[in-house]
Design a protein around this nucleic acid. Structure first.
Length: 203
DNA sequence: TGGGAGATCAGA
DNA sequence: CTGATCTCCCAC
């Protein structure tokens, strides 16, 4: 049960569960929407082979090495955008992947961005869908979450409880680490899937 | 409810 | 060539 925002400079495995229930507001070109975070994953920290920062700084992951409280956005599978909250001390890359949430404001805009197909609970289910529902893209990479900018992170509106924990989704390395946390009973939480290596393309 | 395949591209 | 994914389609 947390009240305010967690201290983002703490170790990522402590910060991650503290982000559950927090609110993330995003202003994009086509509108403003707010989301209640219901599922997260920790990356980085001490030698995490599943982290984008595992092999050091690159143009893509440089935001992860910066100060806590900024948004790290990357392109996934050439199709989706995924958003992370950078944590820890400057220089030591670590971040919390936002995997799912419940849209609490601007659901009309979110619906417009996601299309008619998905059910209400699927609006921001899964990291790619979450980013799309909020209108997050490369423009938001590096955004300061604690100021009055386009992306803002705010404390939970109500007490948070019922936190559950388990292995991360869709990764092949260090797949056994229980670095995913979610709010039990929340319909927006991703279904667990093991990582599957693609076999090959014919010919 | 869950497994399998395709889409599509940036990173190393 | 692989991947911190999603959606559609099919079997059970």
């Amino acid at each position: 049960m947390s009240l305010g925002l967690p201290d983002l400079t703490c170790p990522v495995t402590e910060v991650a569960p503290g982000l559950l229930g927090c609110l993330l507001g995003v202003r994009a070109e086509d509108g403003w929407a707010v989301l209640r975070i219901t599922e997260v994953e920790a990356y980085g920290g001490d030698g995490d082979p599943a982290s984008h920062a595992y092999k050091g700084v690159t143009p893509r992951n440089q935001v992860m090495f910066g100060p806590a409280g900024h948004l790290y956005v990357y392109r996934s599978h050439g199709i989706h955008w995924c958003a992370n909250v950078v944590t820890g001390r400057e220089g030591e890359a670590s971040a919390v992947l936002l995997r799912a949430g419940e849209v609490v404001e601007g659901s009309d805009v979110a619906r417009q961005r996601r299309g008619e197909r998905p059910k209400p609970r699927d609006l921001a289910r899964g990291p790619g869908n979450l980013a799309r529902a909020l209108g997050i893209n490369a423009d938001h990479d590096g955004a300061d979450l604690l100021g009055q900018g386009a992306v803002r992170l705010e404390p939970p509106a109500t007490a948070v409880g019922g936190i559950e924990r388990g292995p991360r989704v869709g990764i092949s390395r260090a797949a056994d680490r229980p670095w995913r946390w979610w709010l039990g009973g929340e319909p927006s939480v991703s279904a667990y899937r093991k990582a599957v290596r693609r076999v090959r393309t014919a010919t």
